[in-house]
Write a protein that binds this DNA or RNA. Sequence first.
DNA 1: CGCGCAATTGATTACTATCAAGAGGAGTGG
DNA 2: CCACTCCTCTTGATAGTAATCAATTGCGCG
Lengths: 243, 243
Amino acid sequence: MPTPCLACPLRARRVFAKLDQSEIRAIQRFKSGELRIGPGTPLLLEGSNSPQLYTALSGLGLRYKTLENGRRQVINFVFPGDFLGLQAGMMNEMQHSVEATTDMTLCVFNRSEFFRFFGANPARAFDITWLAAVEEHFLGEALASLGQRSGLSRLAWAITRIYLRQHALGQVDAKGGFPLPYRQQDLADALGLSLVHTNKTLAKLRERQLVSWQEGRMQVHDLTTLADLAGADLEAELVRPLL
Amino acid sequence: MPTPCLACPLRARRVFAKLDQSEIRAIQRFKSGELRIGPGTPLLLEGSNSPQLYTALSGLGLRYKTLENGRRQVINFVFPGDFLGLQAGMMNEMQHSVEATTDMTLCVFNRSEFFRFFGANPARAFDITWLAAVEEHFLGEALASLGQRSGLSRLAWAITRIYLRQHALGQVDAKGGFPLPYRQQDLADALGLSLVHTNKTLAKLRERQLVSWQEGRMQVHDLTTLADLAGADLEAELVRPLL
DNA sequence: CGCGCAATTGATTACTATCAAGAGGAGTGG
DNA sequence: CCACTCCTCTTGATAGTAATCAATTGCGCG
């Protein structure tokens, strides 16, 4: 009952780079199974050396890091198509944790075969590096947000970012609504704001009629103004490879 | 007069992963020349599509991003051994700029040969991905710092980080002194603090006799306390590959 | 119904930014 | 050699933004 890669619903989306059948079959051979986990389940742990790598197929999660002072930094949100565990694959140890926020389905790859796969499929090796570069790009953007933007802008930036990501996955409805099953605390930890301040800033966005957020669903009423507040241009999602 | 890779002074350091002679020769063939640039020279520009990739051989620089609001985020500092331009190599466009702070020498690689090199040398392809993962790790740490640490901790964290990096490169003298040719503004932009606040916070570290910084040279008088303030453990620099 | 968890709201504190101004060094031109 | 400018570092005063502390509401659950 695992999804055959050739029939992968994600791969059909335009955000993901096209591959031909033989390439997809090579990935299929690399894939060792599928994993389903529920909300709150830890998938990868900071400091651990996971024997598996994953590609998120459905559901949402988050990556975070816990500091010595007990505080938590959410590194980013995990969407379908994200490749998880590369750090452990390359550096033998995860530097952050990943956990599921909703039910998730993941493709599972064995790390023991990772090296062989990487060596035998140069184009896929290239894709993996590409993925790492894309990740690096996002982290750079996030860093710039935390470092240089006000609370309001950061929030607007994060919502815009997630909107675009969900849009690329076809999850945004005609009215600008999409699933956002995270807690305010998660957003706060991602943006370096306190929970209370996040809540109050969110209220401002609501008052300005830019967004509303209830029962795990975000409605963006005015994307242009929101993106403007964020101080980010509204570019389409980058095409990215999918393993 | 370019440095032959086999005699590369960097490669001798323990932080860099060991390669055998034939592997080094393959890199030598990939290397197309050497570049020397002076302080302030831009090397890679945000939005550009550089035909070259670089490895920093000597000198220091910085990577930064300019935001729509005119502010600048320093993504990180560039040290010898850093591989520059990977984003352009993978995504066809740099997402941040890189410029020299001091005189720098760089190994130059042609992007046109990058793909061939990547495909023909799986172990090196692996190293490049590894490098990207290391970079991702640092950005994650930086994100956590900006998001969750106070100004004082951030500063202590940054100095500790740079100390360790310089130490791995053999640049730290017996008294804990090492070159730090950046301006306070650079540090401020890296840490998301204002120049004035950075200056005052630096003064606190000085008062506490933890560090002193003059004429481009930083002296760390008490690394343990500094690292403690940073709320980071004092682990050795990760081994990383060198191209 | 009591509890635990997420979201709110109000009051207060404190960390950081912004505004201003001056000192000291490097480089330039008269 | 000196006046003048530019740049970086410093320091003082003041304004805000965001954190912390406290308390309340609403909901799902055993």
